[in-house]
Design a protein around this nucleic acid. Structure first.
Length: 271
DNA sequence: CCCGATTCCTGTAGGC
DNA sequence: TGCCTACAGGAATCGG
């Protein structure tokens, strides 16, 4: 389930193999992702040189001089570099083929992902224009989070998972960040002191940075651009640890549902 | 405006 | 062994 660290790990894994290379074709075996892959995507990409692959939140942007393609891995998507002649497996929906004989292959069993054309100013695309700051940038700071929390009774966990507030924080890292900051996931956003919100800003940055260093979290089937799993799951403090002792105090970890999502926390360490 | 619920999809795990 | 159901979740969209 790709969150920001998994998307960044994927970007770093694939970029050296394809940046600077010419796209020879887009092969779409199944266009039915979350939104249909536009029929004109092949014509837009064919013959273009892929300049850079950028990440914005959980989106990847493939920049060419004629505009950018936008790709989201949804919750089961993965991208791998393969030789063009390698036979596709089930759920290998799209290949971006390059002149050097290799291609970027998108696999997405649940088809929550997306591949769309975002034009020359991708930041204005409907899916990107409302996005909040990057969590690892200086734009995500206590001023920003405090303003987002002001007057809002929403649970802090669902607030930090809102991409209008900050991008890239999904279900796993929301629980982990709140544990690190010592904040109960159900606490109303407007009832958290400024000092504790500052701790949460730092916790989100630390958790995401550590996860990137570990190559992301592999719960079921996440693999990076070279087919390697991540190792951050070994560092998880609360996610998926229902009933097991808190690593900090030994109290059994609790699981609740919040915003239709499983949520994990230590009832002793988080208030 | 705010915020919770619903929706898309399929592989996997657990119960019987 | 096989069938059935519940669950996993990113994020747009809907509804109160």
């Amino acid at each position: 389930m790709p969150e920001l660290p998994e998307v960044e790990t994927t970007r770093r894994g694939i970029a050296p193999h394809v940046e600077g290379h010419q796209i020879t074709a887009l092969v779409v075996r199944n266009p039915n992702l979350r939104w249909p892959v536009p029929a004109e995507m092949d014509a837009q990409l064919r013959g273009q040189r892929l300049q850079t692959i950028r990440r914005r939140g959980k989106y990847l942007l493939f920049d060419t001089s004629q505009g950018s393609a936008l790709l989201h891995l949804g919750m089961s998507g993965s991208l791998r570099i393969v030789q063009r002649q390698e036979p596709p497996m089930a759920h290998d929906h799209v290949d971006i083929c390059f002149e050097h004989g290799r291609c970027l292959r998108l696999r997405d069993p649940r088809r929550f992902g997306a591949l769309l054309w975002a034009g020359k100013r991708p930041e204005t695309h409907k899916l990107l224009h409302h996005l909040g700051p990057e969590p690892l940038s200086a734009d995500f700071d206590i001023e920003h989070l405090a303003a987002a929390c002001a007057g809002r009774r929403q649970a802090i966990k669902t607030l930090i998972m809102d991409s209008k507030v900050v991008v890239g924080v999904g279900n796993i890292y929301a629980s982990e960040s709140l544990f690190l900051a010592g904040i109960h996931p159900k606490r109303a956003a407007n009832r958290i002191s400024r000092q504790r919100l500052a701790l949460l800003v730092e916790a989100i940055k630390i958790v995401l940075e550590r996860a990137i260093v570990s190559g992301g979290t592999t719960l079921r089937d996440f693999v990076d651009g070279e087919g390697q799993p991540g190792y951050f799951q070994q560092e998880l403090n609360v996610y998926g640890r229902t009933g097991r002792p808190c690593r900090q105090c030994g109290t059994p970890i609790r699981q609740i549902t919040l915003g239709q999502r499983s949520t994990y926390y230590c009832p002793a360490c988080q208030r």
